[in-house]
């Protein structure tokens, strides 16, 4: 019987079915934990730091909105999360997660904006896989490259020094710096485009 083709199909089918069930169960159990963990461990501390002393009237993590960015080159849906901090019913600060391809993979960046005076409050690397000691320095908050974004005015756009802008690259890690800056630029564009409409809601 064990060499019959239907038996093989049945055994393999049952094994695969049970495996699928088990995976669906585990996935259902872990997904909320993973999402909550990312929000709490990675985004919340940064937002607390960037928005420190502003006395926002809402919890920007609770009020987060998902922005639909359309589809990428491979047709996959692209989304990002927008965090808005309000004061007197008006959005005053915003933070947004963007990414760009670096030297060793995507660099994910959280950029926080002050909307009234159009200034960047701060940037934070959420994930990266750059070269240790060179590009990986983008994940060090004390790095001058990261520090220079703080307080930067974005009303005229953000651009690398080599393109006539104001951002100095990390020496020896040009690709990573360009990618990081590209992510920040993307965030600026998205904020300019989306925040008014979001605040109206």
């Amino acid at each position: 019987m064990r060499n019959k083709i239907w038996f093989m199909a049945v055994v393999l089918g049952i094994v695969a079915f049970l495996a699928g069930l088990a995976l669906a169960g585990v996935k259902g159990m872990t997904t909320p934990v993973i999402e909550k963990r990312i929000l709490e461990k990675k985004i919340k501390p940064s937002l607390d730091k960037f928005f420190d002393g502003l006395d926002l009237e809402n919890d920007c993590i609770e009020d987060r909105q998902v922005l639909d960015l359309g589809k990428d080159a491979r047709g996959r849906k692209q989304v990002t999360t927008l965090f808005l901090g309000k004061k007197g019913g008006k959005a005053v600060v915003a933070a947004l997660q963007t990414k760009a391809a670096g030297f060793g993979g995507d660099i994910e960046v959280l950029t926080a904006f002050s909307l009234d005076d159009k200034k960047i409050l701060g940037v934070k690397t959420l994930s990266q896989s750059e070269t240790m000691g060179l590009g990986a320095r983008v994940s060090n908050d004390a790095e001058p490259f990261i520090q220079q974004f703080q307080g930067m005015n974005y009303s005229d756009g953000v651009e690398m020094r080599s393109n006539g802008g104001q951002v100095d690259a990390i020496s020896g890690a040009t690709v990573s710096s360009v990618a990081f800056t590209a992510a920040v630029i993307r965030a600026t564009e998205l904020v300019e485009k989306n925040v008014d409409s979001a605040a109206a809601n």
């Binding site: 064990r2 060499n3 038996f7 093989m8 055994v11 393999l12 094994v15």
Partner: peptide, 11 residues
């Protein structure tokens, strides 16, 4: 079944 054992193992 011996013939599909590797596939089963992998699953």
């Amino acid at each position: 079944p011996p013939k599909v054992r590797i596939a089963t193992f992998i699953v």
